[in-house]
Design a protein around this nucleic acid. Structure first.
Length: 109
DNA sequence: AAAATGACGCATA
DNA sequence: CTATGCGCCATTT
């Protein structure tokens, strides 16, 4: 363990997600420069397993679907957190996803 | 060293 | 709309 750049980048971006907003694995991957490294982003979160204050519940797949909710301590925590922030979730999917979508490659310098 | 796996994404049928 | 396949990159077996 030495170059945790990828991890740190993912953590930082996820932590920078404004409250009430969400982003996708692909968006983070693209921001990091890895266009098709969406899997790596998910891998980073899984490997980290929410070690710090990583609001991983704000990271969903490109469809706004809570694919990784099953990996949370209580799988229902993800949806609850999102709802607490004002994000509506129906059937494990974010409602009005495009309106709450936050793209780091655009919002961040 | 090679194959398998994965919190994804996109193309095609 | 759903179903299937391929690619991507790093980790693990």
């Amino acid at each position: 363990m030495v170059p945790e750049t990828f991890f740190e980048n993912v953590y930082e971006v996820v932590k920078l997600i404004p409250k009430g907003k969400v982003t996708s694995y692909g968006a983070i991957a693209q921001y990091l420069g890895v266009k098709s490294g969406a899997r790596m982003v998910g891998w980073a979160l899984k490997a980290s397993k929410i070690p710090q204050n990583i609001p991983a519940h704000r990271v969903v797949n490109r469809s706004g679907l809570l694919t990784g909710k099953l990996h949370f301590s209580p799988p229902s925590l993800m949806q609850e957190k999102l709802e607490q922030e004002g994000i509506k979730v129906f059937d494990d999917k974010i409602v009005d996803f495009q309106s709450v979508f936050w793209d780091p490659s655009i919002e961040l310098p």
